[in-house]
Amino acid sequence: MNKRKTIIDVAKECGLSQATVARVLNGQQDIQVKEKTRKRVMSAAQKIGYRRNTLAVNFRRQQSNTIAISIPDITNPFFPELIKGVQEKMRDEGYSVIQLNNEWNPDIEQDHFQYMAQTFVDGAIISPSHSGTDFSTLEGIPFVLLTNSDLYSKYDTVGNNSKAGMRIALEHLYSLGHRKIALLVGGSMRSGPSWRYDLFSEFYREKGLTFPANFLVACDYSVNSTLSFLQARKSMEIFLNENPLPTAFFTSNDILGLAALQVANEKGIKVPEQLSIIGMDGIFSGEVSYPALSTVKKNRSEIGGISAQILLDKIKKPKDWSTKKVLLPCKLIERGSTGPV
């Protein structure tokens, strides 16, 4: 096995001092090196197969041109497009992206924060695993949170206006004549009392309707997408076996919506003739389901790009930083799973 080439080897090859070679190969700007000398060093390095030890350089400089993105569920189709938005922006600025998945586990999340601190990442974009996430380990590391929760008021946050998005979905169903709308929730992080339940109850009151208690169908929170789908299927089966059929379901994400749609199809319930279903997120799977799932689309790629830009600004100009709060609108996508009563 060939020994890794070092600066010493390059210096011997080009006949220059190790200090001069190090200045060229490490890109030091404090002392000028003649262009002829620089080309001589680079030619020798290429000839002998020298490769720069980036980790060692990063350790000395305590910077890495790397940022980390921490997510709770790598199986959730919500995240790939968001991460793509982060990567595109960071790549344009010369940064690499490390992706960390904590599986909704606070202990793993803290291990990842330790890793960020120990490897000198220049910054982080974080989707918190739970409402009590401790960020103290990241002291000195710029970070941006992917959330719309009021619980993180002192941090930089980027998210979608999910409350307004849910309202759009409910108003859409109401405009189609639906007065018996049920709510299926679960899967994502629970941040205190269910604002979805509160908004749902408020909607019923505003319309002069009575909200039946059994029209709230809840699955576990903070679980991966596969388990969330299976739990939603089971909850829907129980609900449909034990209760009169509502005219519509709003589901808090598309994974739950697809589960509800699948169970309805298996039971011979015609969608949307007998039951309308609308989800939230706008994942690709909803486009190819049968019927295609109506949804309230979130701007996942835009969230990624904006959070990356805020992080870059924070890295470059940390002094006198003012907290940034970005809340993006949602958009109704009407497909085949919703229709008039």
Rank of each mutant, 00 (worst) to 15 (best):
S201I: 10
F203D: 09
K207A: 13
T210Q: 12
P212C: 10
A213H: 15
N214A: 14
L216Y: 15
C219A: 14
D220Q: 13
Y221I: 08
S225V: 09
L227H: 11
L227A: 12
S228F: 02
F229Q: 13
Q231P: 10
K234H: 14
S235P: 01
M236R: 01
M236A: 05
I238H: 10
F239G: 02
E242R: 12
E242L: 10
N243E: 10
N243A: 05
P244F: 00
L245Q: 01
F250R: 06
T251Q: 03
N253A: 09
N253I: 07
L256C: 11
L256R: 12
L256S: 14
A259D: 10
A259L: 08
A260M: 08
A260W: 02
L261A: 02
A264G: 10
N265W: 00
E266A: 04
K267Q: 14
K267T: 06
I269T: 05
K270F: 00
K270D: 01
V271F: 03
Q274A: 05
L275G: 04
L275T: 05
I277L: 11
G279C: 06
E287S: 14
V288Q: 12
S289D: 01
S289T: 03
Y290W: 05
T295L: 03
R300A: 14
E302C: 08
I303G: 00
G305T: 13
I306G: 04
S307I: 07
S307A: 15
